[in-house]
Nucleic acid binder design. Structure first.
Lengths: 172, 172
DNA sequence: CAGACTTCGTTCCAATTTGAACCAAGTGAC
DNA sequence: GTCACTTGGTTCAAATTGGAACGAAGTCTG
């Protein structure tokens, strides 16, 4: 068999940095949220998404997709949040099978209280660590990575080097 | 209370990119490894670390630290890998309490077989998606993030805006 | 050497997470 | 309309995780 293209020095460094940074940041945030707001990062993200969505509601599948989590995982978390009164399920008028998860006033309140500490933690862990320029570079690079992985469930295949300006959209 | 420093447009974009990219990449790799090699990403990383370590062995704590995982989590995984014959525990001569996890020949073999596919997946998900320049930027940024989080278990505390020139040094 | 404190790994337990299996409901093709 | 196929969510079982509690060893003072 042909020898695979191993990672060179730089590539390996990039990969290690990626792995370390992501693990460390996630760990840090998970801890901060749990300590300060009693929420898991996943739960916090659910609230953020719903809070930002029109009507404060999103379909389960759509939400799972945005959070990059499994459907069953989301079902579990929504149940938890519902139990806590931060969210509730509502059936979809246009599709009997569909279910909307909607944030409650209490959910918004919890989010409002948790947000400052979370933002602070995000700054400490990532944003404020980098210069605006560095941050821009990281955003661009990872943005590209995310875009590719989201759309292209494209199998292995070669370089999709070409364009694909796409993206943008919601930044708010 | 004073209004927290919310994220501006660019910062938010960076944060979202970070979250999406990391989740998507992890998901992708997790799946690839499970499918192709029957290993979880964590297990794969254990093997990588041990394989690269002198003598093919590392102390439990050291290993947990490198993988950015909890000690109990590592205990579990090492037990699994030991059961599978890819690793074994050995006591530490200089410290009775200590335990070395050491990779077995079979472990090295499994790693050797899994590596090509994994590297390929890493390329598809991250490395080859970016230009060498972009990759360099990402590496530098995330490297800095990782470095800070590793050393500075610095608590919450106010804006670290000020000094703390620290770091620098290694920009490679 | 005693006493207080830290470190090392494991054990235990509760919380998550995921994929597979499922049921119910849309969608199409005939 | 009916049969096959895709979708949307939930349920289920199994794997993984992380923190707290522990017991056994080190380390450091006096």
């Amino acid at each position: 068999m042909t020898e695979p293209r191993w990672l060179d020095e730089h590539e390996k460094a990039a990969w290690i940095a990626f792995l370390s940074a992501t693990n460390l940041v996630n760990r840090k945030l998970e801890q901060q949220l749990k300590d300060d707001a009693g929420l898991s990062h996943t739960q916090y993200e659910v609230l953020v998404q719903l809070d930002a969505a029109p009507g404060g509601a999103l379909r389960m599948t759509e939400l799972a997709d945005r959070l990059v989590t499994s459907k069953s995982g989301l079902t579990y978390q929504i149940t938890q949040l519902e139990r806590a009164g931060l969210v509730f399920r509502r059936s979809c008028p246009s599709d009997v099978r569909g279910v909307f998860a909607e944030i409650t006033d209490q959910g918004r309140e919890v989010l409002r209280l948790a947000a400052p500490g979370h933002v602070e933690a995000v700054r400490n862990a990532l944003i404020d660590v980098l210069t605006p320029e560095q941050l821009g570079h990281v955003a661009q690079g990872l943005g590209e990575v995310a875009r590719r992985l989201r759309c292209g469930a494209k199998g292995a295949a070669a370089g999709t080097d070409a364009a694909d300006a796409a993206g943008a959209g919601r930044s708010g």
